Amino acid sequence: MVLLVIDVQKLIVTEKLYKFDLFVSNIKKLICAARKNKLEIIYVRHDDGAGCELTKGTDGFEIYDEFKPFSQEKIFDKSVNSAFRDTGLLDYLKNKNEKEVIVVGLQTDYCIDATVKCGFEHGFNITIPTYANSTVDNDFMTSEQSYKYYNEYMWNTRYASCISMDETLNKMEE
């Protein structure tokens, strides 16, 4: 089992996120539990490319201070929504014969959605803890509507197991 922490970068981890405080608290709990239980934590960062705000080399590109990776924890960079496309992550997990992936991070309706669906297509068992992914309002839905649509309707039992934090923490201890 691995904890996949996606796009928790300084530029986009802001108080505009749905249930910001709960999101931050839950990610910190999951990272702490993974380290305590000796589960691998893998970070993924999004790079929009030169000339954009979310670009390698800028402060906003770096992992949010409260979620900082340890030096031995892996970081993969991506330039598309899915953490599995052209990053090396897919080969890395397959070479480890890893099947269980806990997915957390940003944003629910973009990179989390793409990663969950692609992970499912590649045969991974995806777990999504409650309030460990988030997003902001868009032109079509509020952040709350987006969160509920994906977590309560779209992913659960189709592409992933959307379960409580307590259930996830217990699963990490097994």
Rank of each mutant, 00 (worst) to 15 (best):
Y147C: 05
V13D: 01
S82K: 12
A33N: 02
K148R: 07
I163N: 12
R85Y: 15
E174I: 13
T87D: 13
E73A: 02
Q9C: 04
L30E: 14
D47I: 05
E173T: 13
D7T: 07
T87F: 04
C111A: 09
M172W: 09
K16N: 15
K36L: 12
L39T: 11
S71L: 01
V13G: 01
S143E: 13
A33W: 01
H46M: 07
Y43I: 03
L4V: 04
Y64N: 05
F76I: 14
V116G: 08
L89P: 06
D113G: 08
D139P: 04
L30Q: 10
K171D: 10
N151S: 11
Q107W: 06
E167T: 11
D109W: 05
Q145A: 12
E73P: 01
F120D: 15
F76P: 15
K78I: 14
K16Q: 15
L11A: 13
T135P: 07
H122A: 03
H122N: 14
N170Q: 12
N156W: 08
E174K: 10
F84D: 09
E66R: 10
N97H: 04
A132D: 02
I163H: 12
R158I: 06
D109Q: 14
T168H: 03
N170R: 13
N133M: 05
F84T: 06
V24R: 09
D48R: 11
T130A: 02
L4D: 08
D86T: 01
D65P: 01
S25K: 04
